[in-house]
Design a protein around this nucleic acid. Structure first.
Length: 657
RNA sequence: GGGGGCGUGGUGUAGCCUGGUUUAACACACCUGCCUGUCACGCAGGAGAUCGCGGGUUCAAAUCCCGUCGCUCCCGCCA
């Protein structure tokens, strides 16, 4: 720190006392100057551990009690010329021309140029010369039109400037560790440590504002639709399903724990039994799982539940809400109703249950074409009950051997056994596959994939879900890694491509072979599949839905089971005995004995929603105080050890191994 | 739990692959002086880095190797 450079610098300001505060030299320059403390007597300074010996502040330095801000820094226009104004804010930039000093003064609303001219105010000019980046200052002066030719069209306020009569430093600032004004790339760890400075940057303030506007749009929309915002508890009973819980020890009940909610799922269903009919909450949820760009241990959901509705009612509500949010934040229209894909279609055409529909390159099932093929790889896969899937990469027939190998590596990383590449010339398929194709199958293949000369076909053979999933990943990798493809496949990054994915399976086979709920155990099966519930549970489709935006799962929901007999059958299929069900969900089952209305709902990831609206690739950008990938808070240092007495009271003994 | 990327003055980067002409370079920021119409102000001067940390190889390590820490992307995980 104070390395002594410029030790003499803080001396010798010819300060004029005249009502103006002087800029206060920053610590680096001023620390060694010694001298008396002429600090203002006010308490405002008392708690600031500034180094001793700084040139003192004048009597007028004590905060902003005397002045009142009249305008923000984004609002002055030519019609304000001649008006006496008081502005406050942070020093965005200072340009000292020697005598004449320009200060770009920034606050939340914008930037206004302040001019300090010694011919107009000696004291203001002297103070302005001492000011540095990120000092908080107050300026009193007169709005003037800028001299012809010096207007700045880049600033909303660029036609005018404020001629300073008085300038006060309300608070000096250390040199910030990174530029607030530049708003350029900075290592994320540094940004997180100094999050208060990071958030000060205009782009981050914009994100906070965007988030607020999205939340407000949601509240306005749902309120108008008759929803009640109801809060649910944060300290709740553990229900061992799904993600790992965050534990909260109970002091009063030794050895027992609350957990933080993974979602308000049970409570919102209880609220339906309670007759609330239309509930929503913008609510924090907690899941102790590994982090990703779109996953934080605490995140925010828009949680919605409605009574006396069917699936279409929920979808309509959900998509109208999203359209409203997009309109209120981006001013863009979303065409309704949104398209719907069944889960089966999504998997077949895009290899994923959250397809990115901003571009084509769909997956084609070419199994029929290759049935009976002499090409061993395909023949074996088909004989084993698998499939052969392909995608057409337009204009990629010229990819080199090396490029193809890179694609194969990606496919293998995505779970494919291999990748067969077939470039097309005007005569048809070339490459290793060509000699195993008759003219008829060659043509059939091209027709099936919509491919022509110059295109590249990529095939994966294997079990149905794995083969299409691998191609689905490859499809995404291709537009990510090969920019030249984006135009050819119609990829538009700015598009908002919303789609409902419906009819998920009700159950899935877990790794241990047990049957598990894809969504949660209160999800209703589709009526038409009820018959198979006890005989072929894996074939039963759920009355559920996910909302997908640009390949990101925004959220999902379902129509719930509200009848006791059906719930028993689902529990039975899941292998949840009545005793276990009672232990885990007893209060919900009890509630359902007293007249549960038909109901359903949806929960949307609010952070992800705002991230996509902002065009960001990580929800950390739209969370004011996010955690790192290792779930630490670099600003506060959480998590940390706690006072042993607190552990004692919580009946916790810590063991490290 | 596993795989990949990154870590060099305050910030962003180059240098690393191929060890030695590097006294670790550049831009921005910072400090000093000059400068009355700038808005990427300009000009001149200056300070600031034992190259994340530890160990090893070598005559010699920012550079090669091993370990470790931090950040990050992904797989697993996330009903």
């Amino acid at each position: 720190m104070d390395s002594g450079r410029g030790a003499a610098a803080a001396s010798g300001h010819g300060h004029k006392g005249g009502g103006g505060a002087r800029g206060e030299p920053r610590r680096r320059r001023g620390a060694r100057t010694g001298g008396s403390q002429r600090r203002g007597a006010l308490a405002a300074h008392g708690h600031r551990a500034r180094p001793a010996g700084r040139a003192g502040e004048g009597a007028g330095m004590n905060g902003n009690g005397v002045w009142r801000r009249t305008h923000d820094n984004g609002s002055l226009r030519p019609h304000d010329v001649g008006r006496e104004v008081t502005l406050m804010g942070w020093v965005h930039a200072r340009r000292d021309l020697g005598g004449l000093v320009f200060i770009d003064l920034r606050d939340r609303e914008g930037v206004t140029q302040v001019v300090a001219n010694p011919q107009e105010s000696d004291s203001a000019a002297a103070a302005a010369a001492q000011v540095r980046s990120e000092y908080v200052i107050a300026v009193r002066g007169v709005v003037a039109a800028r001299p012809a030719g010096t207007e700045n069209p880049k600033l909303a306020t660029g036609a005018v400037e404020v001629r300073a009569r008085e300038l006060r430093v309300l608070n000096p600032s250390e040199t910030p560790p990174f530029s607030i004004a530049d708003d350029g790339p900075v290592d994320e760890a540094v940004r997180l440590k100094y999050r208060y400075l990071d958030l000060r940057r205009p782009s981050m303030l914009h994100r906070l504002r965007l988030r607020h506007r999205a939340a407000k749009a949601i509240r306005d929309f749902l309120s108008a639709e008759g929803f009640l915002e109801v809060e649910t508890p944060m300290l709740i009973k553990s229900t061992p399903e799904g993600a790992r819980d965050f534990l909260v020890p109970s002091r009063l009940q030794a050895g027992k724990f609350y957990v933080l909610p993974q979602s308000p799922q049970l409570f919102k269903q209880i609220l339906m039994v309670a007759g609330v009919e239309r509930y929503f909450q913008i609510v924090r949820c907690f899941r102790d799982e590994d982090l990703r760009a779109d996953r934080q241990p605490e995140f925010t959901q828009v949680d919605i539940e409605m009574s006396f509705v069917d699936r279409d009612d929920v979808l309509s509500l959900g998509e109208r809400m999203i359209a409203s949010v997009v309109r209120e934040t981006l001013g863009r229209d979303v065409a309704l109703p949104l398209p719907q894909l069944t889960y089966a279609e999504a998997m077949a055409r895009y290899g994923t249950d959250k397809p990115d529909l901003r571009f084509g390159m769909e997956i084609h099932d070419c199994s029929a074409t290759f049935r009976g093929s002499q090409f061993q790889i395909f023949a074996q896969a088909l004989a084993a009950g698998g499939v052969v899937c392909g995608i057409r990469v337009p204009g990629a027939a010229g990819y080199s051997r090396r490029e193809i190998q890179e694609l194969e590596a990606l496919a293998k990383a995505a779970g494919a056994a291999g990748l067969v590449a077939a470039p097309l010339d005007p005569a048809g398929v070339r490459g290793p596959l060509a000699k195993h194709l008759s003219a008829a199958t060659d043509r059939e293949l091209r027709e099936r994939c919509g491919a022509g000369a110059g295109d590249l076909l990529l095939f994966v053979a294997g079990p149905a879900p794995a083969a299409s999933a691998a191609l689905g990943r490859l499809r995404l990798d291709l537009v990510r890694l090969r920019p030249e493809l984006r135009d050819r496949v119609g990829f538009d990054r700015a598009r908002l491509s919303l789609v409902w994915v419906v009819e998920f399976p009700l159950f899935e086979r877990a790794a241990d072979g047990a049957l598990g709920a894809v969504h949660h155990p209160f999800t209703a099966p589709l009526d038409e599949d009820l018959g198979a519930l006890d005989t072929q549970p894996l074939s039963v489709r759920a009355n559920s839905y996910d909302l997908v935006l640009n390949g990101v799962e925004l959220g999902g929901g379902s129509i719930r089971i509200h009848r006791h007999d059906l719930q028993q059958r689902v529990f039975a299929a899941l292998g949840i005995s009545p005793g276990v069900a009672r232990e885990r969900f007893g209060f919900l089952l009890d509630a359902f004995q007293y007249g549960a209305p038909p109901h359903g709902g949806i929960a949307l990831g609010f952070d992800r929603m705002v991230m996509l609206l902002a065009g960001d690739e990580s929800i950390r950008e739209v969370i004011a105080f996010p955690k790192t990938q290792s779930a630490t808070d670099l600003m506060t240092g959480a998590p940390s050890e706690v006072d042993p007495a607190a552990l004692e009271e919580a009946h916790i003994r810590v063991r490290l191994d």
